[in-house]
Design a protein around this nucleic acid. Structure first.
Lengths: 66, 66
DNA sequence: CACTGATGTAAAATAAACTTTACATTTGGA
DNA sequence: TCCAAATGTAAAGTTTATTTTACATCAGTG
């Protein structure tokens, strides 16, 4: 799972902690997702997309063979 | 998490087992998701959307307060 | 330099997704 | 009615996401 959350945050001038609060997860969770340590739940994916007013598909993308 | 997988399957004339195989999960997982026993991972959500050539947002929707 | 806010990371614990096996129920067609 | 395919469901087990606590680093600012 690739994602461009970091870029979206930059465009919205938003910190990891702020995003975390908006979608009600811990800051570490956002950090881990950005670092691609694991991929989020669909609920979280939808919430993050909503924060940035984007479709899920515009933020998250499957990788080869995934 | 609401979803319209059952409808999508009907439109594509596809069985739970067939969908399960296409996205590489067990049939029970598809069944559980349709029955909204739990919501899928984002990876699985993206795969399912891909099977039906739809955006994730067209198949899955957050519920009130979620 | 000292301080602060933002980020990276890690280990242990909990919660949630997913699998496997197995069986019951429903439904449509021969 | 009988059969088979499709669906529903359940319990136990494994894997993965997420939390909590805690600390380390880094960049900019006083």
């Amino acid at each position: 799972m690739k994602n461009n959350i970091k870029i979206q945050r930059a465009m919205h001038n938003m910190t990891q902690a702020e995003l975390a609060e908006k979608v009600q997860v811990s800051r570490q969770t956002i950090n881990a997702i950005e670092a691609e340590k694991y991929s989020p739940s669909l609920v979280l994916g939808l919430k993050i997309a909503r924060v940035f007013s984007k479709a899920v598909d515009e933020i998250f993308e499957l990788e080869e063979g995934e």
